[in-house]
Amino acid sequence: LSTLTLIEHGNGAALPGSLSALAAAKQLGGPVTALIAGSEGSQVAQQIAKVDGVEKVLVAGNEVYNHSMPETTSALLVDVVKAGNFTHVVAPSSAFGRAVVPRAAALLDVQPVTDVIKIEGEDTFVRPIFAGNALSTVKSTDAIKVLTVRGTAFDAATEGSGSAAVEDAVDPKPAPQSEWVSEQIVKSERPDLGTADRVVSGGRGLKSKEQFEAVMYPFADAVGAAVGASRAAVDSGFADNSLQVGQTGKVVAPELYVAVGISGAIQHLAGMKDSKVIAAINKDADAPIFHVADVGLVADLFEAVPELTNKLK
């Protein structure tokens, strides 16, 4: 058994999901090799080489891998897997992992197992289906197991005193097939939604974009939380889509999740029900959100939330 972990990085550092992927890779039991692609690869390699449990770091510094274009990155992944005779491939379940990994799996003639939340053995994994309404335990019979793992389900591997060897990866030098044009990342002073310890989310109960911002942003700052939103709030234009928590948005599992004016549709619960403590504020005592909440407050959010903000400041 030997595992290759595909590292997602940006601005010269590995993203937190990659450190969770390394932790999952370590759980599999065999030696762990990390693969870093793109022209900042050597810089990221310095960081990853120090992570506990990483034996080797492979770098493909070719700029054709910048912006993680799926066509070239999957071609690289396939060649590195074959050259190193890896039995397992692990990548983060992010937009990046989702775009690249299934493509590479098809090229390896492997049925991938994605969104893994638990590793039960070297070939047996647990993954949510039906928006987390059921958990499926599956056993892969493919010679190579290709996995993506949920960051919220594995504690990030720590950067310790490791000193993995850094080597050049085999590089198939694929020709680019698609071109990266631009990106627009929503900037925020607040903690990142995907990795924050505390999240406060607003729903349709906030009534407008102006009220969403006036009520939720000061509350988030008082709690020290990232801001999230339900799909209903996003669809109504109250908040940007990048804030969406749910089956079709981000899956979060913070220490504290406060749902404000959110009814608790199945699709929203799928994105937050693994939070350690769930608190909910809603004026409708029958709202389904109260079925999953550890602490519920039946109140008008426009009175209760500013009050909470003042008391927590």
Partner: peptide, 9 residues
């Protein structure tokens, strides 16, 4: 994509 949008062609 995570955190925003990306344009590709």
């Amino acid at each position: 994509i995570d955190g925003g949008e990306e344009v590709v062609k």
